[in-house]
Amino acid sequence: MPDTPAIRIDRVSKTFRLGDGRELTALTDIDLSIAPGEFVALLGPSGCGKSTILRLVAALEEATAGRITIEGRAPAELCQSHRLGVAFQDHALLPWLDIEANVSLPFHLAGRSVDGARVKDMIALVGLAGFEKARPKQLSGGMRQRASIARALILEPEVLLLDEPFGALDAVTRRQMNVELQRIWSRHRITTLLVTHSVDEALFLADRVVVMSGRPGRVILDLPAPFARPRAPAVMREPVFHDLVDRLTEALEPEGAHP
């Protein structure tokens, strides 16, 4: 990677102080660079600190040691200039707003006037055309996640953070959402960090898959996913894809399970 990285995670550690005075080390010495326009997927067992990394990049937590920069600046600056898009497992749509108003929310919070045409296009892009006036509780889980992704993309962010956005969906819907996210992403090519525990999802979506060990989390494998874009679901049936799935699955197994 010749470019200067878009996201630089520079030997970051994170220790949580628990309520009873004890401490919990979630991350030690994480070192990771993400190039501009690169899609990186983070894989790892549950509780290894994937979400914590994302929250650090989103300025929702402070690193205990090390430094995180986004284009050379502190993450909080990116938030304050409204250049960050997020979609988490909890869709976090506001229940009192309809889909259109939810997708327009970032415009209001950035103090910009709402670009109605862009909102309409974005809602259509995620496949929710016709549901502009629906309230979140009237939609299915998959549709809510689409809305939350539309909201994340509406301001054309510099960085997109996705934390198991499809974690609560059934397998079929999840596969379908992966295909659509791939299509949407290929059009925008935004620097993206995706947290997931699905190996297929990581390989299908990302340019690079990073595997973390169990707690305290460390990077143990960093593999490119060398498939041309745009990717069709057929990619998942290629032998190379299967080889990579095997390697990643093996890396995810607990230490000592393999020589």
Partner: peptide, 24 residues
Amino acid sequence: AAHRDLFVVLGASRLSTALRLDLP
């Protein structure tokens, strides 16, 4: 907490968080 995090990430000011999230 999820809504609060969202407003932080989207760079909402204190006032607009109060008016668009806390008040509703």
